[in-house]
Computed example of a mutant assay.
Amino acid sequence: MFGLGPFRASAPANVGLLWKMPWRMSKTRKMRQRLRLKAVDNVLDTLRASGPQTCSLAAALELPTEAEMPAKDKYTVFSRTDVGYRKGMHKTPHFTKITSRTNPKGF
């Protein structure tokens, strides 16, 4: 009865998860992440030179730049629920939109 038409079984429905997440970031994903961090640093440098000061801008200027960040902080974020308290940046939803340059002490 359901063999034909819109309700027929498809490969993803039979197999399971369609989008599989790799367990580590590829070289190109890491490169893109570094470029995004450098772009943010460029914007902050421009704002620093232009003059207007706000509380949020002052807080953002205290964050480390891409060159000052260790690789551990560039590509992973703190996660309470993960085994080593770290989770790959690519597994975080909307990881390009969050400021994850600082983590809790010791992690």
Rank of each mutant, 00 (worst) to 15 (best):
Ala58Cys: 09
Thr102Ala: 08
Gly16Asn: 00
Phe2Ser: 08
Ser26Arg: 06
Glu66Asn: 08
Lys105Glu: 13
Ala58Met: 12
Thr96Asp: 09
Ala11Pro: 00
Met1Phe: 06
Pro93Tyr: 03
Gly5His: 03
Lys30Gly: 03
His90Phe: 06
Leu37Ala: 12
Met89Asp: 06
Pro52Phe: 00
Arg29Ile: 04
Arg32Gln: 14
Cys55Met: 14
Lys27Cys: 04
Thr76Ser: 01
Leu44Met: 12
Glu62Ala: 10
Thr81Glu: 06
Pro22Thr: 04
Phe2Asn: 14
His90Met: 03
Ser100Thr: 09
Met69Gly: 01
Arg36Leu: 15
Arg29Lys: 15
Thr65Cys: 09
His94Trp: 08
Val40Pro: 15
Ala13Val: 00
Lys97Glu: 15
Asp82Phe: 11
Arg29Asn: 11
Leu61Pro: 05
Pro12Thr: 00
Ser100Met: 14
Ser79Phe: 03
Thr92Val: 15
Lys72His: 14
Arg24Asp: 10
Ser79His: 03
Leu37Asn: 07
Trp23Phe: 08
Lys74Phe: 11
Gly106Pro: 00
Pro12Met: 02
Val77Phe: 10
Leu63Lys: 10
Asn103Trp: 06
Tyr75Arg: 09
Lys72Gln: 15
Thr96Arg: 12
Gln53Ser: 00
Leu18Gly: 04
Pro93Thr: 03
Cys55Gln: 13
Tyr85Phe: 12
Thr46Gly: 09
Met89Tyr: 13
Lys87Tyr: 11
Met31Tyr: 08
Ala58Ile: 06
Lys91Met: 11
Met89Glu: 07
Leu61Gln: 10
Ala13Arg: 02
Leu63Asp: 10
Lys87Ala: 15
Gly88Ser: 10
Arg48Met: 00
Lys74Thr: 08
Asp82Tyr: 14
Arg8Lys: 08
Ala67Lys: 14
Asn42Trp: 13
Ser100Lys: 13
Asn14Met: 12
Met21Ile: 02
Pro22Arg: 10
Pro64Met: 11
Arg48Gln: 04
Gly84Pro: 00
Lys74Pro: 04
Val15Gln: 12
Tyr85Met: 13
Pro6Trp: 05
Pro12Cys: 03
Lys38Met: 10
Arg48Thr: 06
Leu47Cys: 05
Arg80Phe: 01
Asn14Val: 07
Glu62Ile: 06
Ala13Glu: 01
Phe95Gly: 04
Met31Pro: 07
Val83Cys: 13
Gln53Cys: 01
Ser26Leu: 04
Thr46Ser: 12
Gln33Glu: 04
Ala49Ser: 02
Phe7Glu: 08
Met31Lys: 15
Leu4Thr: 09
